[in-house]
Design a protein around this nucleic acid. Structure first.
Lengths: 242, 242
DNA sequence: TCCAATCTGTGAAAAATTTCACAATCAAAT
DNA sequence: ATTTGATTGTGAAATTTTTCACAGATTGGA
């Protein structure tokens, strides 16, 4: 008899909402405000109905690893027992810490990951200089790159800096799995190629060009103008969203 | 007999893809590369199948304003004539400029909009100092705010700067419709309230807190950590996405 | 001219996602 | 002890979104 965790495919929208929920809970955890929090309130904070939150949580498979060959449930198992996060105590709602841990475990957030940054312009510097919050420390920059030697020499930081020509080598050698692109539009595609050649598994791209996703590399394209466009379109359509 | 444009509700995912398509086309327009571009290639550039692109475009209602009381179509109008963007010439594929204009018109992108920026820290300064590209100029910053008088005095820019206490007043007086938040997490909610009080219709929030959308205000929440979380979750799930 | 290849536009089918609705559970008050 | 009011967890229904599949159109040869 094998021992496995239920792996429902976890719908992408649920995955994204749970990611947001994770950092929301991280914040809630510090504010000791309420001991527990209901699905409805979580939903309000995320602009989503409470039942969606509950459903998303249920995709996580609730109570930890499931054993096959366990004794069958009672006659009318219409409803399952509370999830670890909800049942940990005798109160209603979810315990922020427990829920955060459950999500972190299931979604593979949890341990600190290493990332690299490409581009030391204004935006790149802003990214480089952030990271006072504990939340931010879950992603540690272990290398940064720029195409300008000048800029590399002028930038003050503890993080090792390299020329962009070395992206692939350094990424491979340091086993970096995430890349952050903060270069001008014209350079972005080339940078992405180098990052992928080096073996990153995911890219966050802030350049105003779309990095298409290839070969199973996860990509998030973000641009201020793009976001403003979407908002303008929603306003124009008289729909409020996200 | 009235004269109106067909308004299908335009599904949110289509609206967002079309927004991206819009700026993609703006880029394509300058590169005179191919005279026309197929739905399939557009799809590749956006990591979406070609039929989705075509369907999205079809939501726009194709050929311009429709007159009621027009003579009925021929016997078998199974297929409609080409859209303006596709039919403008006798070739296949879409004309980037024509398609861009069609989308711009239907989505209300097109004219320049005014926006304001709150927060003159590293990220805020980066946003303030961008805007060399013509694309970026579609959104003009007409005011910026910070809670530190010191920083207001030190920041060099042509854009009028104000103290954060004045957000509501200035936004109202200048009739600013979009707000960009680049302040620390702790201040973000308060800033959002002021922006909304002043009458903005949409907010792009870069602080690592979720601004819930209220009263029909469109909101986009963006944070580096949040994006990295989503990517990590996708990697963890062995799914590549967006 | 006619054939082959390619591409758009779109109903209709399929798939994915959200919402509903309710049994089970719990806390608090009576 | 019971009742009342909230809340979770989740099948099932409803809705939304994507994909399919194909008619009609267009181009480029043979």
């Amino acid at each position: 008899m094998k021992n496995f965790t239920i792996k429902s495919p976890l719908p992408p929208p649920a995955l994204e909402r749970l990611s947001y929920l994770y950092s929301l809970l991280a914040r809630l955890e510090t504010e000791t405000h309420p001991p527990r929090i209901t699905s409805r309130r979580l939903g309000e904070l995320l602009s989503v109905p409470g039942e969606t939150i509950r459903k998303d949580i249920s995709f996580l498979g609730g109570r930890t690893p499931v054993q096959t060959g366990q004794p069958e449930q009672t006659e009318h198992p219409k409803t399952s027992p509370r999830t670890a996060a909800a049942a940990a105590s005798r109160e209603k709602g979810y315990d922020p810490s427990a829920l955060k841990n459950l999500i972190g475990e299931r979604l593979g957030l949890g341990e600190t990951r290493t990332a690299c940054l490409v581009g030391l312009g204004r935006l790149g510097s802003a990214i480089l200089g952030r990271g006072a919050l504990p939340e931010e420390r879950r992603y540690r920059l272990t290398a940064a790159f720029d195409a300008s030697i000048n800029r590399i020499e002028l930038t003050q930081t503890d993080i090792p800096l390299f020329h962009s020509a070395e992206i692939s080598r350094v990424v491979r050698e340091k086993n970096i799995k995430l890349g952050i692109i903060a270069v001008p539009a014209a350079a972005a595609s080339d940078v992405a190629k180098r990052l992928i050649a080096g073996g990153v598994q995911g890219i966050v791209n802030f350049a105003p060009v779309n990095i298409p996703r290839t070969q199973g590399i996860a990509v998030r394209n973000i641009s201020l103008t793009g976001e403003l466009d979407i908002i303008s379109a929603y306003i124009n359509a008289h729909l409020a969203h996200t």
